[in-house]
């Protein structure tokens, strides 16, 4: 099996290069150039100034040369510098990473904490009033527009009740606070975004657990467990749930890119300094190095996440064994 995984790992390399090539190509096809933000309809930017900027950014070279240059730098893990402020792309990503992770990890934890019991309850009490109202509840979360819900929550908990701050990551006076007060301040600022993103993200996992559990409950070994007289909660929580969670383990692998990826809409509404805004602003400004940096890292994490999911699957499920040819 190690040979099989080594081979899989090796295959990721051409796949990643392929993805970067497609990303680069699509970016080139989009109308507009990075320098347009500065020079479009700007009568103070002369034709010479435009040409100078294009040359300084290396945009006068044919696109395949630009791509090759980028690939060579990427091989040395150098993502280049942003066109917007001339700072290294990796540093721009790095400074947004902690805040992004903080938000995504907290909301994922919350999703697991809430969605698991919801899924179990819905499966055990299939078609009951509990099941139906929980289903409606998670699908409301799934369907409402995030913007609307976020604004409503801001108005209710921020403006009307005054319990929580409206937006941002921390207060303006954060630096003068004691450590305890700083933690509290962060928690208060995180409350609304975490709650809103958890509520809107419950549906997937809870339905996953519900359907998985329903399938497992019909298996022979569950009937055996019941037949030998085990109490029902032991049947469900010990025998059924553990097998239900096998696909959930893979799900966690697939969630890896989500941990560092951000949502543009979400971060914009909450004035949250995360990756989503970085990526979106880069696309709008045609900031090629940042687009490539964010895109490549997302692609890499997706591939690695898939790979880890497969590895984890083999580990937790004894029925699955990969054969190296």
């Amino acid at each position: 099996m190690p040979a099989y995984f080594a081979k899989r790992l090796l295959f990721l390399v051409p796949l990643l290069v392929g993805i970067t090539l497609v990303t680069f190509g699509v970016m080139q096809l989009a109308p507009g150039k990075p320098t347009d933000m500065v020079t479009d309809m700007n009568v103070k930017a002369s034709a010479e100034a435009k040409e100078r900027l294009i040359k300084l950014y290396g945009l006068d070279k044919p696109w395949h040369v630009q791509y090759w240059d980028w690939l060579k730098r990427f091989a040395r893990l150098d993502f280049g510098r942003s066109f917007r402020d001339d700072r290294p792309v990796l540093r721009k990503i790095g400074e947004r990473l902690p805040a992004t992770l903080l938000l995504n990890v907290s909301s994922l934890l919350l999703i697991f904490l809430i969605a698991l019991p919801i899924g179990i309850l819905s499966a055990v009490k299939q078609d009951s009033l509990w099941d139906k109202s929980l289903t409606v509840f998670v699908f409301i979360g799934f369907s409402v527009p995030t913007i609307w819900l976020a604004l409503l929550a801001m108005i209710t908990f921020g403006l009307k009740l005054g319990w929580l701050p409206i937006s941002g990551l921390r207060s303006l006076t954060y630096d003068e606070m004691s450590l305890g007060a700083q933690c509290l301040d962060l928690a208060r600022h995180l409350a609304l975004p975490v709650l809103v993103s958890a509520f809107t993200g419950l549906a997937g996992l809870s339905r996953y657990v519900r359907n998985g559990l329903l399938e497992v409950i019909r298996q022979d070994y569950i009937r055996t467990a019941r037949a030998k007289g085990l109490p029902e909660n032991r049947v469900i929580l010990k025998h059924a749930l553990r097998n239900t969670l096998i696909p959930v383990v893979t799900l966690v692998g697939l969630l890896l890119p989500d941990l560092i990826g951000g949502s543009f809409i979400f971060e914009t509404i909450f004035a949250y300094p995360g990756m989503g805004r970085l990526g979106f602003d880069a696309i709008m400004a045609r900031d090629y190095p940042v687009i490539m940096g964010v895109g490549t890292i997302a692609a890499l994490l997706t591939l690695v996440g898939n790979f880890l999911a497969d590895v984890a699957y083999a580990y937790v499920d004894p029925r699955i064994r990969y054969q190296g040819k």
Binding site: G168, I269, F270, A271
Partner: peptide, 12 residues
């Protein structure tokens, strides 16, 4: 302060 949405600015 950077608040990218104008309606959120208004709430603030």
């Amino acid at each position: 302060r950077i608040i990218p949405d104008s309606s959120v600015q208004f709430l603030e």
